[in-house]
Design a protein around this nucleic acid. Structure first.
Length: 225
DNA sequence: GCGACAG
DNA sequence: ATCTTGTCGC
């Protein structure tokens, strides 16, 4: 994968190492209908302040979607952003924030793709393997694949395909608002991921877990300054 | 060969 | 992600 001209060229040696690590992790990904009883649903998000990264986790009761916990971890970031390798930059710190949750969730909604990735290991899948926890990804922009624009009415769905296989769904979570891209991360299947993303999308484009994690990232950001 | 590229 | 102004609509 080449890289966008507006980004600094990554070290070929680093990319080689990360690609190898990605392959190891990808082999551990399990895509199947989860057997859990969904009672606790988490959302997470990352934001940056100079050389530091703020990683946030929110815990919601399901299906009420009532906010129960909000935690964060703040520390230095190790790697630059490289398209296709987002998880190596954000996952380590998300794991540290996750450790602070008193009640561990049954499922985690991640801001980014699951298997809708060039090598089928987006940040949602990688984080799921690292935590051995079911995950699904909800991204605002496509990374890989082709799709038809879903109808402008909330609930419309269109498949996201890549190399002959369906890797996710493009779903309209709000009338006349740009759709989001949903894909299973780990210990999850596309049908369930899609249903949960739609069911937790209330009055906004982003489903509640992701939207609240996003919101508290801003709140905590003001706190750490 | 020319673009495109999660956060 | 972050930097940024005004503007449109519920």
């Amino acid at each position: 994968m080449a890289w966008p001209s507006h980004l600094p060229p990554p070290d070929p040696l680093v990319v080689k190492e990360l690609t190898a690590r990605q392959e190891e992790l990808r082999e551990q990904v399990i895509l199947q209908k989860p057997d859990f009883q969904l009672n606790w649903l988490a959302g997470c998000d990352s934001s940056f302040i100079g050389e530091n990264i703020l990683s946030v986790f929110v815990l919601l009761k399901y299906p009420e979607l009532e906010l129960m916990e909000k935690v964060y971890h703040y520390g230095p970031v190790e790697l630059p952003y490289i398209p296709g390798f987002l998880a190596f930059r954000e996952a380590p710190n998300l794991v540290k924030a996750y450790a602070q949750l008193q009640q561990k969730p049954d499922l985690i909604m991640v801001d980014g793709h699951g298997i809708a990735h060039p090598r089928r290991l987006g940040i949602a899948s990688q984080l799921g393997v690292l935590l051995n926890k079911p995950t699904l990804g909800v991204a605002k922009k496509v990374l890989t694949g082709k799709y038809e624009e879903p109808a402008p009415v909330k609930g419309s769905i269109t498949p996201l395909t890549h190399r002959g296989e369906q890797i996710g769904n493009v779903i309209r979570t709000k009338d006349k608002v740009k759709p989001v891209f949903v894909s299973p991360g780990h210990l999850m299947d596309l049908e369930t991921a899609t249903a949960i993303a739609l069911k937790t999308a209330l009055k906004h484009k982003l489903p509640e877990p992701t939207r609240l994690a996003d919101h508290y990232a801003e709140v905590f950001k003001a706190e750490v300054r």
